[in-house]
Each structure stands twice: as structure tokens, then as C-alpha cells.
Design a binder for these strands. Structure first.
Lengths: 347, 347
DNA sequence: ATTTGGATTGCAACCGATTGCATAAATTTT
DNA sequence: AAAATTTATGCAATCGGTTGCAATCCAAAT
């Protein structure tokens, strides 16, 4: 184990003070540029690396952002994290990542850990069953900025990065209506979460403005898992008055639902047209290919980190508690096309 | 912004020394248990939180593990990370995660960052085109343990967590042979990576031991992307002597290949049987469902972190440079079943 | 009553970088 | 040439825990 080189070692060799070395390495304007050059050269030569802890301790900041996500292993979240990582890395920030596994309890524990690790800022997408904001209060109190993404909590001191879920839900449903669907079902998740309640609202508005049935019996609240897709298909099979279109808030769930429906002998989209959400890889593999809402994960991650870092560096926009809304886009594929070429893609 | 509480504040109030407070909070055996209790109570009451930097600075360790992966956004890697996160979290370790995006250059930069962040240990799965070990030398020199997982590099000082890729490749290929395939193709990735070279070797052995053609023209080296799947199908379509079975080292690629083959009018598995790798969600959505090799991602992450932490805590097993081999399992689905019920799953 | 030894606690020196203030050196102004 | 600035560097305190070693306390042993 080699001994670590410190600024003291450099100072001693060059016969100057550690303070000067520190300033030189941080490009402080008060240091003569020739001095800087020689110090830097020597530092390199000696294999010096700055001790982050000493620096953090003194400066009282960590250059680390905390990230809490519901699950790491979803296509969407992977994309978000990939974006975050790239952006953070480019600005010299590190990410401390943890997952709540959709449990509020674990989320609370994670928040605590992040807090104790003294992250400079927190990026969070809340769990399925998170009810309160309490566990984030400590951050607010200590002035640590919080930015929510995707699944956000409205709070006067926090900003957020989202898509317009209402609009996305509206577009998805309207598309089904255009394709001739008259009785449209919606399979969604916990309505405490903005993403699901927003989409539901968009779905309802589309129905209402077209004079279609928007009753609660057509809304199925699930955990949007693969099993939930099966369950939905089962449920539909048992209905007297079956839907001719379904808007499902998650592609994995939608794909599994299509699969089950086909097994039960229904034709998609002829009998039932389906629209999913997320543009997950499965949407391009299921037959028929799944119409879905594209949702810019990578970009969401990038934007979230960028806006957090800008905020930390004092460059933040005028409004601290602003919400950034990213575009989403309906990608039309076979699973919803009743009118055009639907016979080709039917099965 | 509230003032942070330190052990000095606690010490002053209780009229004891900071050293005692520090020891009490760390459950040091020399401290009287009653003293401990009262110190802990007071610490809680005052909202004390330990300053990690001061602690790290003094102890010269970070309680942080660095993780370098090729990509964050794959199903397999998400599972690995989820496992790592769980295990690390349970032991009070943090994860610093970065992705190489399959580029050796970025991997080198990431390694440098990890090194400068003074991670206690490094967990890595190397990029597609990593050629040398050089960028990891600094860790070895400073005695920072490195553990490779999945895509490993053999090095006397590093341990690894893998599956038996050769065996998996052998099983997958043998299965195709059992189903009556006589001319089996293999689509794989960069052979510098153990995972691909191992599977290739297993594939060859299965062919050879069954007296089948194991020539190079049947091996297609690609990046295993979706496009590569299309490309493979295209290539097959142009062949004079077409294969009747394909073993593809990645489900995403395999699914896309099946899709393309179907579009070109081939029947799977009747004309061409296919086996993939990874048990990605798409494998259960593609029609016919994809036979694949299950690969315990979550468990791999858990084991990697656990074994790293055990090592760091001095509990490591006798052999420092051991390799842990996890079980993989062939999951048989429709895409390879020529004999049994194949007509049902044919299309 | 004195000694012995384990159980507790305190002292004080770190860990390595940062920074307000003072000082010295170089340059300009008068 | 002396005074006033400007420019560069150093001093020393500080961030908050950790830990080797010494000191103290108290009950058991002699």
C-alpha cells in the first residue's frame, strides 16, 4: 500500500505553503500563473489525488446527488438513470442510487440514508404507496433541494420534471375513439400517483367530450404487473358488456393482457383495440405490435440532473419551484388500428 | 439553515468528552452501557447525524462501492443492480454507479473517477471492446479490491462472479440438437468477452460431440442489438444452405431475429428453431415464446456485493482470487420445440 | 489496609484541504 | 525617493470524528 500524496508533501518539496498549493490546484486567481504551472506539474508527477473527504469536510458539500427510484429494473427507469448518470458525470457529480421497491417504508429509510450521506440534492420518483411528504421535510429544513421526476409530489419548495400525463391519456384515448371504439376501458395504477391520476383524467375527458360512457366500472386499478395484465383479460372475458378498446398505463401489463386475450380467442385489434404506455421493448415484439406512448426517459434523467446542478450552482432559473414538462408522443402500431390495414396486423 | 449538531455539542451538554460520545455512538465495547444509552438518547433528541466526511477522513475509508457496468438500461443489468443495491444497503454501504456505454475509453474515465472518489472496492463488468487491464492497475497498487461480474477479466488479484457460460452454451446447443437440428448457427458478441467466447466454446463442443458441422461460417459475430437480429435474418435468407437452428446469445437480438424471419416467411420453430439468452421479458412476449437461458441477475448482484463486503471486513474466504459460479438454467419454450407440440406453437 | 486488575473515560494528536486575514514583495503614483 | 497600490504568498484556525495511550475508578484479592 503506497502512501497517499497530500498537498503538504507537494508544499514541502517545492518549499512553499500548503495554502498556495491548494489555491493553485483550484485555480485561484490570486496565484501567479507560473507558480500554478510548476505546482500542477509536480502534483501530476507525484501522482497526487485530492482527498474528497477533507475537501468536503471543509467545504461542507459533497458533489453527490441522491436518487431514489421505485425500481431499478424497468426499461423506463434504466433509461432515466442512464441519462442522469451521463449528465452528472459530465459535471463532476456522483450519483448515489437507491430503490424503494415501491414501498413507502423503504423509501423513508432511503431518504434517511441519503440525508445522512449529505447529498447536495435529492432526485426522487416516489413509491406506489407513499402518502406523506414527512420524510422529505428534513431536506427542506436543511435547505437541500429536492426535485421530483415522473412520479412527483406537489410541494411549494420542490420542482419537478414530468410529462403531461393528462394530455397523453387524452391522446391515447382519443386515438381509440377515432378508431371507432365505443366502450373503452382503462387499466391503471395507484391513483395517488400523479402519473396515473393524470392519465385517468385525460382518458375521462376524451370519453366525455365524445359522449361516451366514462363510468367507474370501466376503470380497473391494478399494480400494472404482468399478472395484472392477465387478470384484466380474465375480467374482460367475464364481462357481459365487453369493451372494444383498452388503454393500459404500462406496456408490460398491456403486452401480457394482449397475450391472454389472444389465448381466450379474442382478436386484437378487431375485437379489442389496445394502447399501452412507455414504449417498452416488448411493445415492438408483441403481436400485433403495441400502440403506445413514448416517454423520454433518458432525456428526463438528463434534464432532472441538469436542472438540479444549475440550481446548486446558483444558476437556477427565476422560479425555484418550477415544473418542467417534457413532450410525450403517441406511437401508433397494429394493436389499435381497427380502421387502417387492421386485417394485416390482426393476428 | 439550522446548525449541525456535532459530537462536541452532545459532549458539552452531557459534560463528558467527545471521545466517549464517539465511542458510544459506534457501540464501542469499552463504554458503559448506561452511558451509551443516555448518549444515544441525547443524540437522537438533538437530531444528531454523523458527519461522514470527518469519519471517512479519519478512518480512510468511504463505505462506498464503485460499480461500472456496460449499460444501465438492460433488463439483466437492472436486475443485477437491484440486487447489489439491496445487499449494499443492508450492510450500510453506498453504491457509486457509472456506465461505460460499451466503450473502453469511457470505462477508463469511469475507473479514474471511482479511484478518485476512493471507493472501498470496485465491482465491474467490462465493456465490449476493453483490451487491457491497465486502468485497473491503480486499484491493485493501492490495494483496493476489484471484483468482476458477468463480463470478467482474468487477473490473479481479482475475483469474479459468473455463470458457466460454456455449460450454458453447451446445453442450449444440445437442446437444439435433441430437437433434431442438424445445421446450427450461432449469433454472438465480441469474443474478447468471456461470456461470448465461453458460450461459443460450449456450442462448438456440443456440435462436435454430435458429429455436426462446427465451421466458422455458422458463427456470426455482431453487437447483439435489435438491428443485429434483423441482419442475421437477412443473412440467413441469403444463404444457400440455411440453418435449421440458431443459438443467439441475447434475447433482444433473438426476438428481433424471429420477427424478421417470420416476415420473410419462415416458420419458427418448424423451419428454424431458436434459442436465446437472458430470459428477458421479451422472451415471453414474442411468438412463439423464446427458449432461453435464465441467468440470475439479481442474485449475481447480491453475491457480488456480499462477497466484496465480506472481503473488506476481513471475513473473506481463504482464497482471495476465487471465482463464484452461479447456476444458469435452460428454459424451454415454443421457439425451439420441433418435436413436441411444435405445430401448436408454430406461428 | 494495601495491592491488583479490569472496566471506563479523557487527553490530545491526528486525517487533509480550505480560507480570512496578515504580510511581504513588486509596481505604480506622486 | 517616499508613499500608495497591487499582487502573491503564508499563517493558523477550522471542518468533525477517531484512536493510541494514559489516567481514574472501584471492587476483588491478599
Amino acid at each position: 500500500m503506497e502512501k497517499e500524496v497530500t498537498i503538504y508533501d507537494i508544499a514541502k518539496i517545492l518549499d512553499i505553503s500548503p495554502a498556495t498549493v491548494s489555491r493553485a490546484l483550484n485555480d485561484h486567481p490570486a496565484i501567479n500563473s507560473k507558480t500554478k504551472i510548476s505546482i500542477r506539474a509536480k502534483a501530476n508527477e507525484m501522482g497526487y489525488r485530492s482527498n474528497t473527504f477533507a475537501s468536503n469536510l471543509r467545504r461542507r458539500s459533497t458533489n453527490t446527488l441522491g436518487v431514489i427510484v421505485p425500481r431499478l429494473n424497468s426499461h423506463f427507469m434504466s433509461a432515466v438513470l442512464a441519462g442522469m448518470e451521463e449528465e452528472a458525470n459530465a459535471s463532476g457529480y456522483n450519483l448515489l442510487i437507491s430503490q424503494s421497491l415501491e414501498s413507502a417504508k423503504k423509501e423513508i429509510a432511503n431518504a434517511r440514508t441519503m440525508f445522512n450521506s449529505r447529498v447536495d440534492g435529492l432526485l426522487a420518483s416516489v413509491a406506489y404507496d407513499t402518502e406523506t411528504f414527512d420524510h422529505f421535510d428534513i431536506f427542506i429544513k436543511k435547505n437541500v433541494p429536492i426535485l421530483f421526476f415522473d412520479r412527483i409530489i406537489d410541494h411549494p419548495k420542490c420542482s419537478g420534471v414530468v410529462i403531461d400525463n393528462m394530455l397523453a391519456g387524452f391522446k391515447a384515448t382519443s386515438h381509440l375513439i377515432e378508431q371507432g371504439c365505443k366502450r373503452i376501458m382503462h387499466v391503471t395504477g395507484n391513483l395517488k400517483r400523479n402519473v396515473y391520476s393524470g392519465r385517468l383524467q385525460g382518458y375521462r375527458e376524451a370519453l366525455v367530450s365524445n359522449g361516451l360512457n366514462a363510468s367507474d366500472e370501466l376503470v380497473l386499478i391494478t399494480d400494472l404487473s404482468q399478472d395484472a395484465g392477465k387478470f384484466a383479460a380474465q375480467r374482460i372475458d367475464e364481462m357481459d358488456d365487453r369493451p372494444d378498446g383498452i388503454f393500459i398505463s404500462n406496456d408490460i401489463c398491456a403486452a401480457s393482457c394482449i397475450k391472454s386475450l389472444k389465448e381466450k380467442g379474442y382478436y386484437v385489434p378487431k375485437d379489442i383495440a389496445i394502447v399501452g404506455f412507455n414504449n417498452d421493448p416488448v411493445s415492438q415484439v408483441i403481436e400485433p405490435n403495441l400502440t403506445t406512448v413514448y416517454y423520454p426517459g433518458q432525456q428526463m434523467g438528463e434534464v432532472a440532473v441538469r436542472s438540479m446542478i444549475d440550481h446548486l450552482k446558483g444558476k437556477q432559473l427565476i422560479d425555484v419551484s418550477n415544473t418542467i414538462i417534457l413532450e410525450s408522443e403517441l406511437i401508433i402500431r397494429g394493436s389499435s388500428l381497427k380502421k387502417q390495414r387492421s386485417h394485416l396486423e390482426a393476428y
